[in-house]
């Protein structure tokens, strides 16, 4: 009986996309999970390491200014959507809007790589109803002499304007930018108009994210 059931079940053909589907499930979970909660021991360890570094390099080592010539590290992720397809980007986002980066306000990280937070003034909403100044989180940022970039997505620049596509994280009350396809810079009214048209259309034809 035992062998018979096994034998019969082994006759079920394995499709070649099986591997990919496992990855997609894990990626989606990873995306939603953020960073596991730190344990105190890790924090204490970090504090000890930080104080040692401080004593070696002296207080001037730490400054708010990023290094002039950082070593760029590109992070790759198993994205669950095609970040080059606006319809998928819009479908995956909670909010799509035009905004101006006011200033960098933090570098809290929920993952194993740096993340950077910015205050952004919402200029126009395409999807969702965001207004006023909000906190936007970008995966990537400086860590010592390194600049980590997610999928080579350039770090947001204060004073510049972008089309943002974001997902809201309630616990932190910030809006995480979808890399590359979710922060598109524009420099003129004409470009702005084009982006609004393009993304309104993408919203009309959005491909909602689902596990398929």
């Amino acid at each position: 009986m035992n062998n018979r059931i096994k034998q019969e079940m082994y006759r079920i053909e394995i499709p070649k996309e099986l591997n990919e589907r496992s990855k997609m499930g894990v990626s989606k979970a990873k995306y939603e999970m953020g960073k596991p909660k730190r344990r105190w021991s890790y924090i204490i360890g970090a504090v000890i390491a930080a104080s040692l570094t401080l004593s070696i390099f002296g207080p001037n080592y730490f400054s708010n200014n990023p290094p002039e010539n950082p070593i760029i590290r590109t992070m790759e992720t198993n994205t669950v959507i095609d970040i080059d397809d606006p319809r998928e980007v819009v479908g995956f986002s909670d909010n799509v809007f035009l905004g101006k980066v006011i200033k960098k306000v933090g570098s809290k990280s929920l993952n194993d790589y740096p993340e950077t937070q910015f205050n952004v003034e919402v200029l126009d909403s395409i999807k969702g109803e965001l207004k006023g100044t909000i906190k936007v989180n970008q995966q990537g940022g400086y860590d010592g002499e390194y600049l980590f970039l997610m999928e080579n997505d350039k770090l947001l620049v204060e004073g510049h304007t972008y089309l943002f596509a974001t997902r809201y994280l309630k616990e932190e009350n910030w809006h995480t930018v979808i890399p590359v396809g979710g922060d598109i810079p524009f420099n003129s009214d004409e470009e702005k108009k084009e982006l609004i048209e393009k993304y309104k259309k993408a919203y009309d034809e959005e491909i909602p994210f689902k596990l398929k």
Partner: peptide, 11 residues
């Protein structure tokens, strides 16, 4: 679909 959802839920 079930495999993908299982990967998602289990992780």
């Amino acid at each position: 679909d079930v495999v993908q959802e299982t990967a998602y839920r289990s992780f």
